[in-house]
Design a protein around this nucleic acid. Structure first.
Length: 921
RNA sequence: GCCGGGGUGGCGGAAUGGUAGACGCGCAGGACUUAAAAUCCUGUUCUCGUUUUCGAGAGUGUGGGUUCGACUCCCACCCUCGGCACCA
């Protein structure tokens, strides 16, 4: 072996040899000793791998290699999330097919991954854009459809008039413009496929319990699901004539007692007969019914059905001018995008309807207003306004001159009328002016009033979720075609898929309204009932027609009316109805880029990986496995994923979507597990040297190719693992990387130096061996805890010791140390293993070293001696002299200790073998 | 506003109740070299005093508390990064 370290001389050789010898092939998993290590697969962009990829893939690779050496059967796969807008944009720009663009990007990624020595089993490679792969994505779509989890409906979506395409919310910038073209985004109603993910809100929430995930990610998912317990209170709505009388219905016949002549402009209190015939009712959701005695108004969203009834004159407004102002307000709010509504911020605009709702508790008349600060899809789209104890209600009341009452008093005991927002008591306090709730703590009052309202029949306990249904279609080319057919005739005849097919229904763990049970079951037949009418004429393709392949098109641009480019493909669109055989058309929307990533982790685990590379049959003969996924998955013991590693940016979307699919598939009895990812760890981003994001436009991008060429792959790997704790964001530093380069070179030097390694019979150093045992223990614990930085530090520390010691290290221990380094630096360790130690099988399949406790024992121990908690001296004792008496005796002999103790009395605190503290006074 | 992470030398960081600053970078001095680079050696928290070997004090965002002993546990606050947000 040459003394000079030149990684170029051997790295390529090992890449080839490992592949040839299938060193990293996933074997057959046995239940106890299987380890599925997975890193979030990449979208293969045109820029190639960046240093952030290198970091996350190296970390996962270290884990895979560690477990492999520890005797586990390891599945460590890699694949490509190939569908998505960037490839499509690049294709439009370069006048190529997105498939070509994607394929060449994949080639670059794959070359770079091999260059970095990642131990993937490439036999398991998948690509979401392979027809073999998306055949199953489509098949899964159909299963969800059949069980009532997918339906199509006109839905408002973000839309760019300039690009003529619907947009995902994440493609809309904070200022309401399109991230690609910079034009202002509008909202447009388009027919969309929608996933009923909300059905699984409770299931997704409950499933989080017991997952070994970072706390922050768990919290984000919880917040996103956003479970809230509250009550829906239904109020009668009445009209009052100009003399202050009840007006029942719109006909206006006075009904009920004369109103109090002292009625103020905004409300009225006192015992009153109930109106016999309220005009309508409005139901408000609230989590804080305890403040209900302080309610002074009702606000509804412009989309609320009561507002719509007024607009459509189903509920009449006498005063034409008032009708006009209501109409103007509703129409202008509906034109605003959600962002515009938000960006108006604190401005609480609104219009009074002329109607009043009656507060059950005190018969107060609460004016009903329409305002766009109330959101249509939150709660019941109607809010009961308690301006004394809610900031937004306060602002609204101030803006429109509505009464503000105080019903809660805080610890400051201020009971003066609320005139400033600082006086608002929202979180804690004691009830006042609230009838039977007076003097109760607000939390107790909340329970009391809820029970009271329910008992009286005025309210209903409900649980709401922040989670919204998932819009699952895109009007784009580069995605999985949705395998559905629409037959106009069958739709006209009101024929649905379920009228003609028996679907095995199942019990699902779903969100429910009954808060007393933690797990709520519902039968999928209920879901089907809900959507049946909207789905007349829609039929899924049969299994034998899958995959529905993406046709070649002339142009990838969407058309004028916001339809997918697939609409141009007349011959493709035209098909026959699976039910009546008449003329029908295919769905032209495609699936969003999340689809393929929702199940890719189990594609890797299949016995027959769905990939064009592993198929011998021609494309035309592809179909999902006979018996469906069930047969494929039930005999794979790899799942669930044991370690899932990736960036925190997927905290909600991908991780939630994938969990949702698995929960539903589990309920359908297709898969034997519910939670796909047992343990999750995040990787921190790698910023550029200047602390900014790496970006072509800043010119601060570090290309792994350049680093490997100059320093070798091992240096890059060790540096990326050593630079900071794995989950922390860190700025790249080529300067610091030199430290790792030095470390790798010193490894090379010491193993090349025959004066450092003892042959059998030669003298050696016992202390160095003892140190090595400690390093083995540390790394064996740190590595599976994703503490890569301290593992490397321990390796460096040992190298320092070994280098400094004049005596040699016995060969078997030198081999052990090399093994500890192997997961981090696979190339140099393999080269040394096979050239210095003359091994013929890979170090990466060798057995992980075991620490020998007997070798650790040290003859001498250093024991710090404190006086009053300050270290004043250090004594050296023999390992069998660490009892308190001997240590104390020795400590008292120290002049330094005597000087601090003098003649004072002292208390002795001794932690065996660790520290001695003498406390005077 | 709400939720979560974090605050330790010039820098990245280590230490989860027991010697604060491991390991690495940088920096300083030295060796090698005609020179530079590379490499190696020594030192490197701050302040003060002896100026050599050492000694004293301070010190982990701030202020309190618990403890023989606190970066670590508890209370209050400040700053910072990330996520969510007119969520009723």
């Amino acid at each position: 072996m040459s003394k000079d370290f030149d990684p170029q001389k051997f790295e390529k050789k090992w890449i080839e040899k490992w592949e040839e010898e299938k060193v990293y092939a996933a074997g057959n998993p046995s239940k106890e000793r299987k380890m599925y290590t997975l890193v979030m697969f990449p979208y293969p962009s045109g820029a190639g791998l960046h240093t952030g990829h290198a970091r996350v893939y190296t970390g996962t690779d270290v884990l895979a290699r560690f477990y492999r050496m520890n005797g586990y059967q390891v599945l460590h796969p890699m694949g490509w999330d190939g569908f998505g807008l960037p490839a499509e944009n690049a294709a439009i720009k370069e006048k190529k097919n997105p498939r070509e663009v994607t394929e060449s990007n994949i080639a670059t990624f794959k070359r770079q991954m091999k260059m970095l020595g990642f131990s993937y089993d490439w036999e398991k490679e998948i690509n979401t854009t392979d027809p073999e792969y998306y055949a199953i994505t489509q098949w899964l779509f159909i299963q969800f459809f059949k069980h009532g989890l997918l339906y199509k409906k006109d839905t408002p979506v973000y839309y760019c008039d300039f690009c003529k395409t619907g947009l995902a919310q994440e493609e809309v910038m904070a200022d309401g413009t399109h991230e690609r073209c910079g034009n202002v985004v509008t909202k447009k109603k388009l027919p969309q496929w929608i996933f009923k993910i909300t059905t699984y809100a409770e299931s997704l929430l409950q499933g989080l319990e017991g997952l070994d995930w970072p706390n922050g990610i768990l919290e984000m998912q919880k917040n996103w699901i956003g479970r809230r317990e509250g009550i829906n209170i239904t109020y009668d709505v009445v009209q009052i004539d100009d003399r202050g009388r009840w007006v029942a219905r719109s006909e206006g016949s006075p009904n009920g007692a004369d109103p109090d002549s002292s009625r103020g402009s905004t409300g009225w209190e006192g015992e009153r007969d109930r109106p016999q015939q309220p005009v309508d009712t409005i139901t408000c959701f609230t989590t804080r019914p305890d403040t209900n005695f302080g309610a002074t108004f009702i606000v509804i969203a412009p989309e609320h059905k009561f507002a719509q009834k007024i607009l459509q004159k189903k509920i009449k407004i006498q005063d034409e001018a008032q009708y006009q102002s209501i109409e103007t307000y509703i129409k202008s709010s509906l034109q605003k995008t959600e962002r515009e509504r938000l960006s108006e911020g604190g401005k609480k605009t609104g219009v009074f309807t002329g109607f009043y709702a009656i507060n059950h508790l005190n018969n107060r008349l609460m004016p009903v207003w329409i305002s766009d600060f109330v959101l249509a899809d939150v709660g019941t789209a109607a809010v009961v306004g308690v301006p004394g104890h809610d900031m937004r209600d306060f602002e609204f009341a101030k803006a429109h001159n509505i009464d503000i009452l105080r019903v809660v008093v805080g610890s400051d005991r201020d009971i003066s009328p609320i005139i400033r927002k600082e006086q608002i008591q929202e979180e804690e306090g004691t009830m006042i002016n609230s009838g039977f709730l007076d003097n109760m703590d607000i939390h107790k009052a909340t329970k009391e009033i809820m029970n009271y309202l329910v008992q009286k029949g005025w309210g209903e306990m409900v649980i709401t979720y922040h989670l919204r249904d998932w819009i699952f279609s895109r009007q784009r080319y580069w995605g999985e075609p949705i395998p559905m057919v629409f037959c106009k005739k069958c739709a006209g005849d009101k024929i649905s898929y379920w009228d003609k097919h028996e679907v095995e229904t199942y019990d699902l763990h779903v969100s429910g309204r009954d808060q007393s049970t933690r797990t709520i079951y519902k039968n999928s037949s209920d879901l089907i009932k809900d959507i049946k009418e909207t789905m007349y004429g829609w039929f899924p393709l049969s299994d034998k027609d899958l995959p529905l392949k993406l046709p070649e098109v002339q142009s990838y641009e969407p058309n004028q009316s916001g339809e997918s480019p697939l609409v141009q493909m007349r011959d493709w669109v035209k098909t026959s109805c699976p039910h009546c055989g008449g003329e029908a058309r295919r769905e032209t929307d495609t699936m969003p880029n999340w689809a393929g990533s929702c199940w890719y982790f189990f594609a890797f685990a299949m016995n027959q990986v769905p990939s064009s590379k592993s198929q011998t049959s021609s494309l035309d003969q592809i179909s999902p496995p006979a018996g469906g996924l069930k047969s494929q998955i039930s005999n794979s013991s790899w799942l669930p994923v044991d370690w899932y590693i990736g960036g925190a940016e997927h905290a909600v979307l991908h991780l939630l979507y994938a969990r949702f699919w698995m929960h539903a598939l589990h309920d359908m009895k297709l898969i034997p597990f519910r939670e796909p990812f047992r343990a999750l760890r995040n990787v921190g981003m790698v910023q550029a040297e200047d602390g900014r994001k790496m970006s072509k436009s800043w010119g601060n991008v570090i290309n792994p190719d350049d680093i490997v060429e100059k320093f070798g792959a091992d240096t890059l790997r060790v540096y990326e693992m050593f630079m900071a704790p794995f989950s922390l964001e860190v700025a790249w530093s080529t300067q610091t990387l030199r430290g790792s380069s030095r470390f790798i070179q010193r490894i090379w030097q010491i193993y090349s130096d025959s004066a450092k390694i003892a042959k059998p019979g030669e003298s050696y150093n016992k202390k160095t061996i003892a140190e090595l045992q400690k390093v083995i223990l540390k790394i064996t614990v740190d590595t599976p805890n994703v503490k890569f930085n301290t593992s490397i530090a321990a390796l460096m520390e040992f190298l320092n010791i070994w280098e400094k010691n004049e005596e040699k290290l016995p060969k078997n221990h030198a081999r052990d140390f090399l093994k500890l380094l192997a997961p981090f630096a696979p190339f140099i360790t393999e080269e040394i293993w096979q050239s210095i130690f003359d091994e013929t099988t890979s170090i990466h399949t060798s057995a992980w070293p075991k620490a020998d406790a007997q070798l650790i024992t040290q003859e001498q121990l250093y024991i710090p001696v404190q006086v009053n908690g300050k270290v004043r001296d250090m004594i050296i004792v023999h390992e069998n002299e660490i009892d308190e008496k001997r240590v104390l005796e020795k400590a008292l002999k120290s002049e330094k200790i005597q000087r601090w103790i003098k003649d004072q009395k002292y208390k002795i605190i001794y932690i065996k073998g660790k520290i001695l503290n003498l406390v005077t006074a």
